[in-house]
Design a protein around this nucleic acid. Structure first.
Length: 589
RNA sequence: GCAUCCAUAGCUCAGCUGGAUAGAGCAACGGUUUUCUAAACCGUAGGUCAUAGGUUCGAAUCCUAUUGGGUGUACCA
């Protein structure tokens, strides 16, 4: 479409003797109700032409019609100049650009990006909120890969701290040596069970203390259980053998459980970091900041940074006793990650409750003069809420990740069986299909929404399989594959074919937009952009499929080849696009 | 209090850097199968784009204020 801009600039020069910049030329797709494919909005040009919008549009239209061979007609509606491009132009684009092998091939851009996501705590199993994080992180990483980046996916596991000690303590007191093997429970669920037990017993103690006329705050602080957990954390930090042994054992169970969940979700990582290795980092950075005068020390010895000039607060970066706070280790970890990978950009996929934290973190690193600080980005996403409100692990009001995946697959199974189209599949093929469809529905459901928006999930209302859904796109792909095989399709690059019907033109124009849509989605770190495009494409294809007479029976060989090419490319784009979202499209369903 | 995000059809969501009469899906109602997969297609109905101002030839989109909701504002992570 570049040539239209260039030619319009030429027209303005010729007609009005004005040299204007490209930004004046406002081009968009022509709306369905008007004739043409490309529309120039002429209002911005009026101040150069000094004529009415209609006159200006007509004059430019005449010029383009005379001077540009691909433009074969135009019409003017108010200030809009609608251009009709010759079919031969689109056919040429289709055959020589879209059908080339490299249309869907990744073009490396030489840049490196890190995507940190998942980052679970090891005291409880994953729930729906984590599922959103995982699917989003994975999809963004794949999106950036497809856009040409070299991508490193990393998982920073929060494997230490008071919350893990709570599970450990409860297991020690009430576990009777229960193991995943003895109980048949998945490791992460077993550990989570004791986290919940801890909370229940802890609450009981608080009630007892309150009955003894202690204040709530006081009771929370002094309950024997919490004291014991804190004691355990101190022992952990001191390297106490028994505590470390238990910690390793229980974390091991959790990792086994997580591996299964990750595998089921289809997410992966290039590198794991563990907070037990990184929690002491950052003190060098604090020294560096003091030396540079970015930080200052208070009388009690604690170290701070003053961000009030940037509209934020004063922020503690090191306690008076020299121990770290959360941001201390994040400063150090950021440095370590950069030293490990020297990436150009680093994306943190973390919920929006930490918006403030990351704002502060990035600002501090910038003030410390880190050249790489400008490449840091917090991909903030909204919480997943239930109709009853927030999910709370401790209170058991969570949608468990493993349960949810299993339910989705079961629903897919039922729906597929009802349709009865795959009776000849082997048991293994069936299982694979149900898994792909169930996960396709789940992933699309979570990814089609803008990351920053909060998401409402109603467990009583199952996720759809019809309409704007993953299975709809999967179905469209399967439908095309079936058609291609029935038609005995063989790829062939060009055919002698010179006129398009409206729906073919629409298909070609939409297919041509794929690279740009992909790149926009990558720039915005938004799988939702891609998801919406794929839905649109699938929808348009179904219309095409319905409107065009059966292609298999088409007798005009050229026309048949041409239409099958459209089908085949659509399937390829759907497959490539959904793969980025982590969705597998089946050959049949 | 301060900061920040969100508000579009009954419900769930699109609407790109401002452009023509605001679009999908679900739910409701009606239609389409002797034609390549009906998880599909076509149609009907459904809107004061939270409210009020402002900028502009033009605002769902940008700015300001107000209302309602989320989150944050810890020497927790």
């Amino acid at each position: 479409m570049k040539f239209i801009i260039t030619q319009t600039l030429g027209a303005i020069k010729q007609l009005y003797n004005e040299a204007v910049t490209e930004s004046v030329i406002n081009i968009q797709e022509t709306r369905k109700e008007f004739e043409g494919q490309v529309t120039i909005v002429v209002f911005p040009i009026v101040r150069f032409s000094k004529k009415s919008p209609e006159e200006t549009a007509n004059a430019i239209g005449e010029y383009l019609l005379k001077n540009v061979e691909q433009i074969i007609a135009f019409n003017v509606v108010k200030g809009f100049l609608n251009l009709t491009i010759a079919d031969s132009y689109w056919i040429n684009i289709f055959n020589n650009e879209l059908l080339r092998d490299d249309f869907l091939r990744v073009k490396p851009n030489g840049q490196k990006v890190m995507v940190e996501y998942s980052s679970p705590n090891t005291n409880k199993p994953l729930h729906l909120g984590h599922v959103r994080n995982n699917l989003l992180g994975y999809a963004v990483a794949e999106l950036l890969k497809a856009d040409g980046f070299e991508v490193f996916k990393v998982n920073l596991v929060n494997d230490r701290g008071i919350h893990i000690c709570k599970s450990m303590l409860a297991w020690e007191k009430w576990g009777n040596g229960e193991t995943p093997e003895s109980s048949g429970l998945k490791g992460d669920h077993l550990v989570g069970k004791y986290y919940v037990i801890f909370d229940k017993e802890y609450k009981k103690e608080i009630e007892v203390l309150k009955a003894e006329e202690k204040t709530e705050e006081d009771a929370k602080k002094n309950a024997p259980l919490i004291k014991a957990a804190q004691q355990m954390l101190l022992k952990w930090e001191a390297g106490d053998e028994a505590v470390i042994g238990l910690w390793k054992r229980m974390n091991g169970w959790v990792y086994e459980g997580f591996e299964i969940t990750y595998k089921n979700l289809g997410v992966d990582f290039d590198k794991y970091y563990y907070e037990s290795d990184t929690y002491l980092l950052g003190k060098d950075t604090v020294d560096e900041g003091l030396a540079k005068g970015v930080f200052f020390k208070k009388k009690d010895g604690s170290v701070w940074i003053d961000l009030t000039a940037d509209g934020l607060d004063q922020k503690l970066v090191l306690r008076a006793d020299g121990t770290s706070v959360y941001i201390t280790q994040d400063l150090g970890t950021a440095q370590m990650k950069y030293d490990d990978f020297q990436m150009d950009q680093s994306i943190y996929v973390v919920g929006n409750e930490q918006d403030y934290h990351f704002k502060v973190l990035f600002l501090i690193l910038e003030k410390l003069g880190k050249s790489w600080a400008k490449g840091l980005y917090h991909l903030s996403y909204g919480m997943v809420d239930l109709p009853s409100g927030k999910m709370k692990s401790r209170e058991g009001t969570v949608v468990d990740a493993d349960d949810l995946v299993a339910e989705m697959i079961e629903t897919a199974k039922q729906k597929t069986e009802t349709q009865g189209k795959i009776s000849d599949f082997s048991a293994k093929e069936k299982t694979e299909l149900y898994t792909n469809i169930g996960l396709g529905a789940l992933k699309y459901f979570l990814l089609k929404v803008e990351p920053k928006k909060r998401l409402l999930f109603d467990p009583s209302e199952s996720i759809d399989f019809q309409g704007n859904t993953g299975p709809f796109i999967q179905y469209t792909h399967a439908r095309i594959k079936s058609l291609l095989s029935k038609a005995g399709y063989h790829p062939a690059n060009s055919v002698a074919h010179d006129a398009l019907i409206a729906i073919e033109l629409d298909m070609i124009m939409l297919l041509a937009k794929y690279p740009e849509e992909l790149s926009n989605a990558a720039k915005a770190f938004s799988p939702a952009f891609l998801a919406n495009y794929l839905y649109e494409l699938a929808k348009l294809f179904n219309k095409f499929y319905h409107e065009v007479p059966p292609i298999v029976k088409e007798e005009n060989i050229d026309l048949k080849q041409h239409r099958l090419n459209i089908c085949c490319l659509t399937a390829d784009v759907l497959k490539a696009g959904t793969k980025i979202l982590g969705i597998n499209v089946p050959e049949r369903m």
